[in-house]
Amino acid sequence: MTNESGMPLWEVFIRPRAGLHHKHVGSLHASDSTMAVQAARDVYTRREEGDSIWVVASADIHASDPARSAENFDPASDKVYRHPSFYDIPDEVGHM
């Protein structure tokens, strides 16, 4: 779904403040990455939403196939031994 005649689409990620992850907030159109960062600043940080911006050309995002969600993600659901509550230890040990 490339937008031949239009401007490329960019996905915008904003970090609310240092110490947090950049989070996807939406998208916008811009001719290149410099303009995309500036547009992201003007569009998505008007209310002090963040202190850092990432933009990624939407065309460069690769995603998992929703049709394969079951084989991708369901196998993790019965691996209870990955979680601390799986293991019994005497109460006297206290927090571990």
């Binding site: 779904m1 998208s27 995002i61 049709a67």
Partner: peptide, 11 residues
Amino acid sequence: MYSQGLIGADS
């Protein structure tokens, strides 16, 4: 748009 590189949207 997330559809580039994705499979579901176009079929």
